[in-house]
Design a binder for these strands. Structure first.
Lengths: 213, 213
DNA sequence: CTTTTTGTCAGGGTTTACCCTGATAGCTCA
DNA sequence: TGAGCTATCAGGGTAAACCCTGACAAAAAG
């Protein structure tokens, strides 16, 4: 019997997954969480084999949650669920000990395959995900920074959030009681880390890769 | 018997919806489409009562698809499925004759309720969606433009796509063989239509509301 | 206990975005 | 057929973002 925890904030998706697994006698969905915090507390109370973890969740996102699961419950296996197949995201999830990475547009068969494979101690990644990871690992594409080093500091995330909410550098400086020059420096660092040219690229990347909390 | 077409690009979500409806003898899912174009062609071949239409789809998005469904198959009822409860989006879907608007985090009971209600000729909107619409309709919040007029022209969308891809005004002008002044004008119009202050807000809004093709 | 990272700030500069007013031509739909 | 929308362009701005170099202290990591 494989005990599963579903961590996913869209009820419709949760029901969908449950329905896919309903006729499988070997699999039992024993808990559901709608954010990372909830997932962690449910892991404490239940005996879980595999966590199906949505990457884009409020409160505590997939990246952070998987990191904590690895630290607190190393025996629990995590399969990441995602809308996109972003190289950077896959890579950082891998570093967090995730055992599988599947896209939300897969069907029942693939889902069962993924669960069984991971339960048996192997890794499972959709073909498309593999391709993406291979591509983003190729030299040349990933020169110095970009793709991999997507570690933003707390302050940088704070400032990015304000940028996305249409605050200007001057307004951010005022709000955080720091100099405009400091805000400019943070912006500059974020542009470099994300390997983008301007605010448009910054906002797009941050939203699409789900780099915020 | 209620015949349903599901138009949704995430297979997992499709399976979820189908599973929710599986034990309902009065409801039958007769067709599935993964984009707007497909949905339209399936409507031609099948006898459909209700379309469950995802708003964020590639190729032909929910707004455009609902418009065409209204024009070509006025008897078919459309229930919009969305991740977000954006006032502007709800309003434009309403104008396109959509009969229901539900969020993807609802459960089985609500979904059945929505289908039955719409089939009976009434409208169905989640409470949360209603609140959002009411709020966004209140005077003061919605002065002159904003919120409602989310109609972007073809050229504007084209330029927005380039902005998101980090092209500058000068580069866009060169690429499209038009003056920088013209590009500036388009940018200005888009900022006004979306009621945002700068590029950051533009990119965020466009991505989050799924206003692009 | 040293090295790295993070967060802070400055001068001085270029480039890009944003704002205002005003204009023209073609297309579209009532 | 005429009003409205779309797409085009200009002059002449101001505001904001981006770039370069360089610096220092506190915190975190090794």
């Amino acid at each position: 019997m494989i005990n599963i925890l579903i961590a996913e904030d869209h009820q419709m998706m949760v029901d969908g997954i449950k329905a896919m697994l309903a006729n499988e006698p070997a699999i039992r969905v024993v808990a559901e969480a709608s954010n990372g915090i909830e997932a962690l507390s449910l892991l404490e109370k239940n005996d879980i084999d595999i966590v199906l973890l949505d990457i884009n969740m409020p409160v505590l996102d997939g990246v952070e949650t998987s990191k904590k699961i690895k630290a607190l419950y190393p025996m629990v296996k995590v399969i990441a669920l995602s809308m996109y197949d972003e190289g950077a995201l896959i890579y950082s999830m891998l570093k967090n000990g995730v055992k599988g990475y599947i896209l939300k547009n897969i069907g029942k068969e693939r889902l069962l395959e993924a669960i069984q494979t991971v339960y048996d101690g192997e890794n499972y990644f959709s073909d498309h995900v593999k391709d993406t990871l291979m591509t983003s690992m190729q030299p040349g594409k990933t020169k110095s920074s970009s793709e991999f080093m997507v570690k933003l500091t707390r302050r940088e995330k704070e400032i990015i959030n304000l940028i996305i909410d249409e605050y200007t550098t001057a307004e951010i400086a005022e709000k955080l009681f720091i100099s405009e020059k400091t805000v400019e420096t943070h912006r500059k660092h974020v542009l470099q880390k994300l390997n983008v040219r301007n605010t448009a690229g910054l906002v797009r990347t941050v939203i699409q890769k789900g780099l915020l909390d």
